[in-house]
Amino acid sequence: MADSRFPQRVFGVGTEPDARFTLANERTFLAWIRTSLALIAGGVALAALDLPLQPGLKLAAALVLVVSGILSPLQAWFGWARVEQAIRRSEPLPGSRLAAPLAGAVAVVGILLLLGFALR
């Protein structure tokens, strides 16, 4: 019988893997979602709170956080799908495409906030 689980492009390939690997992949997905929500909350807090920062740099930092928070769920979904496909095909696991850019974005936010505090 054909596998009808969503999405077909993931569950239609390979063989059913060890359930523990699927559960671990699901937890990684959830960790990305929580990261996304934290980034969004940080951006909103930065914009909403009356902080002693240079306004332009504060806005830039908030935008970087929110945009990173929008990209993270995409990484969560497509990363989950790629890893699940690799597990089902018994192939090496692909790396995360957004991990390095996200680390860079958080570093940029830190620098913007430092500059914003210094130039206020």
Binding site: I33, L37, I40, G43, V44, V66, G69, I70, P73, L74
Partner: peptide
Amino acid sequence: ALVFGAAALVFVL
């Protein structure tokens, strides 16, 4: 999460 992000972007802007 994407809806939250879009709402947050509108708010920040």
